[in-house]
Design a protein around this nucleic acid. Structure first.
Length: 566
RNA sequence: GCACCCGUAGCUCAGUAGGAUAGAGCAGUGCCCUCCUAAGGCAUGUGCCGGGGGUUCGAAUCCUCUCGGGUGCGCCA
């Protein structure tokens, strides 16, 4: 595949001796408007070195570059040199590449099989799975696929919140008010009700708190009854979580939650102590981080028990030992920024040279118009409810628009879920989200269904054509503006995937395939595909194939399915 | 109080390793289905880019101050 940017750098650096390849490549940009060319090079920065005005320099470069077959025109526009690529060559290089690579278009072996551990989702046992948890789940799932696509070996870890004082409280509440039948019927709802009730009661009778802590102590000491109940709660919760993961098509390689590290923390605390950085303070043990402008990292609480930082440090060491990762990524909301900065600094202070391979990728928080999501106060939007509503809406739209569709239920699931995932992956992840049902269930404009629809349309044309697609077409037929715009977006896709990985930002892909769908819809409207002229039909079908293929790859990287029909 | 993040059109947001006239979608209005899926396309208006100052040939983008919102700051995770 010809890289036009590189070709320009080559040309210019050959002409202008004092400039290297790389230097030129950094200067090249894409003009705000295509009537100014496909690529442009501003000459301001050369003005000083050459002691000439940028306009004169641009003009001279243009004179030197005349007559290159890759470009139909190289023009001087004030201080800019504008490059217009040869559209035929451009179409050929892009479409041949896609036709050859197909579902691998955009993939690369950047990772060289190195392991990347991705820690995502991590819901709390016995608590409802609400829209707040959705973000970590879908962002992590998407990054999992993106890293794989770029040649890494992704390891997905669900670091379940399955340990802590809260489980002592749960057991206590269960012993007092629990009913097995109700729990089996609606596990999380009932368990969560018990948990809330416990807190309400504890406000009146504080001694309940002690009782809860006692049960947690029993749990930590391996008390048979406590363990049995804890395990029961965990199994019930997981069963419900898995229903959601199945709907979302999200998978994990490991479900090693917090409890997994119980017997591994002593050794790590010992290591911190040996390094001489563990200090006693106010009855607890900390690592002082004053030097790094951070509050201390708490390792051991006053009562001798561990805390989540201890578990995170332990888990990181375990993961390094087990997977020898090149990178370990954590997807949580930004309220944990300080926590991650602290314990990662501790890893560094422990002398682990891989500390810089740990990376926290924070995202924004979800709230409702009523304010923050609070499970305890009932201000939650449950994920099952959201997913069900989205699927239901997709279903009724199918009834309305395409009642003869096959596999209606399956398509409704793909479209409904697609809308929800897309919604979460469409903006920069750091932005907060105020949940809004109308927005979430909108299927028009920049939405998942819009992109899926473009894909289904493309597929439909290909099916109707009954034609063996080939890359042996007359590329001079693919040079009108609506067509070229589509090809430009196809061409840009691989770089966007890389950027999405580098910034841990799936939304870059979301935006790009939305633009592609948009350009395709326009092309579809303007340029009839199944025309009588065989050569034109053949050429356009190749383009349609390339679009369908690229949208499908892009959606796949987001964890969104692409129905063939909808 | 200190630290970090966010502030762009009525709403939701792109654009921020400085570059040419700041872009989409939604909402509103008006067109387009004898034509490959109208979940679509086309047209139409809107911007002290929160505000002041600075750096620069050039700032939504960098620096600084300031205002508004969010988050965090020792025994929850």
């Amino acid at each position: 595949m010809i890289d036009f940017k590189k070709e320009i750098s080559k040309l210019v650096s050959n002409q202008v001796e004092s400039l290297s390849h790389g230097e030129v490549e950094e200067l090249i940009e894409i003009p705000p408007n295509y009537n100014m060319g496909d690529y442009a090079m501003p000459c301001f920065k050369l003005a000083k070195a050459f002691r000439k005005s940028p306009n004169v320099i641009a003009n001279e470069i243009v004179e030197d570059l005349k007559g290159n077959e890759l470009f139909e025109k190289i023009e001087n526009a004030g201080p800019y040199v504008n490059f217009f690529v040869n559209k035929e060559v451009f179409a050929q290089t892009v479409l041949e590449e896609i036709f050859t690579k197909k579902e691998k278009y955009g993939s690369q072996n950047i990772g060289q099989n190195q392991n990347v551990v991705i820690d995502y989702s991590a819901p709390n046992i016995a608590k409802p799975f609400h829209v707040g948890h959705l973000r970590s789940t879908v962002i992590g799932n998407s990054l999992y696929k993106i890293y794989e696509f770029l040649g890494y070996n992704s390891v997905g870890v669900n670091h379940l919140g399955d340990w802590g004082t809260q489980f002592g409280k749960m057991i206590c509440a269960y012993k007092k008010w629990g009913n097995d039948e109700e729990i089996e019927k609606e596990p999380i709802k009932t368990l969560h009700y018990l948990y809330v009730k416990f807190h309400d009661e504890a406000e009146k009778k504080p001694e309940l708190e002690d009782e809860g802590r006692l049960w947690f102590k029993k749990l930590e000491e391996g008390d048979e009854e406590a363990i049995k109940l804890w395990k029961w709660f965990a199994d019930l919760s997981l069963r419900e979580f898995n229903r959601i993961y199945d709907l979302l098509k999200v998978k994990f390689d490991h479900y090693t939650g917090e409890s997994f590290y119980n017997d591994k923390m002593d050794r790590v605390v010992e290591m911190i102590k040996e390094k001489g950085i563990l200090k006693e303070s106010e009855g607890a043990y900390i690592v002082n981080l004053e030097k790094y402008d951070m509050p201390p990292c708490l390792i051991i609480k006053k009562d001798g028990t561990t805390i989540y930082a201890t578990r995170d440090i332990t888990a990181a060491i375990y993961r390094k030992d087990t997977f020898n990762f090149a990178k370990c990524l954590y997807l949580t909301d930004y309220s944990q920024n300080l926590h991650f900065a602290q314990w990662m600094k501790v890893i560094e202070l422990m002398g682990f040279d891989w500390a810089n391979q740990l990376e926290h990728a924070p995202f924004g928080r979800v709230s409702t118009e009523q304010g923050r999501l609070q499970t305890r106060k009932g201000n939650v939007i449950l994920l099952d409810e959201l997913l069900d509503k989205a699927i239901e809406k997709a279903g009724s739209l199918i009834e309305e628009k395409n009642p003869n569709l096959k596999d209606k239920e399956e398509v409704a699931r793909k479209v409904g879920i697609g809308a929800v995932i897309y919604n979460d992956l469409s903006n920069n992840k750091i932005k907060d989200i105020v949940f809004n049902w109308d927005r979430m269930l909108s299927f028009d404009g920049e939405t998942g269904p819009y992109v899926q629809y473009a894909h289904a349309r493309a597929n439909s044309v290909l099916e109707k054509a009954q034609f063996d697609i080939s890359a042996d077409v007359d590329y001079s037929l693919l040079t009108n503006e609506d067509t070229v715009e589509v090809i430009r977006l196809l061409e840009g896709f691989p770089q966007v995937v890389v950027a999405a990985m580098e910034k841990n930002e799936p939304s870059l892909i979301t935006r790009h395939i939305t633009d592609l769908a948009q350009a395709f819809n326009k092309f579809y409207h303007e340029c009839p595909i199944l025309v009588d002229e065989e050569e034109l039909k053949k050429a356009r079908l190749l383009l349609v194939f390339a679009v369908k293929n690229t949208i499908k790859v892009g959606l796949g990287l987001l964890g969104i399915e692409a129905p063939e029909k909808m």
